[in-house]
């Protein structure tokens, strides 16, 4: 039962994080929130028993892709129109 509560909580937080990442007009904030989203995804997969996938997501999704996004946004405009 405890796992189910965690599962439900993470799933709802995922939707919130996805919406916030796409709503925010500051792109740096958006990419950091996207990192949070990836980390929540990683927690969810660890909870579902997919430890290898969770490890990969923690290193790649929450680590490299956030850094690469921020590195690109520094070379572009930081503000987004929507």
């Amino acid at each position: 039962m405890g796992l189910e509560i965690i599962n439900t909580l993470i799933l709802l937080l995922l939707v919130v994080a996805a919406l916030v990442a796409l709503r925010v007009k500051d792109l740096i904030t958006a990419s950091v929130v996207f990192g949070v989203y990836s980390f929540l995804m990683c927690l969810l997969w660890a909870e579902m028993g997919a430890v290898d996938v969770a490890f990969t997501e923690a290193t790649v999704g929450a680590g490299i892709s956030t850094v690469v996004l921020v590195a690109t946004i520094f070379n572009l405009k930081r503000k987004s129109s929507d």
Binding site: A18, L22, S31, A50, S65, L69, I73, S80
Partner: peptide, 25 residues
């Protein structure tokens, strides 16, 4: 619908992780 390309790419990544979530589920 998003106007900014970076936002589109974040949307693409969310799409991708959604499919991965389905597979793992």
């Amino acid at each position: 619908a998003k106007n900014n390309f970076i936002k589109k790419l974040i949307g693409m990544s969310i799409f991708q992780t959604a499919i991965i979530l389905f597979y793992v589920s």
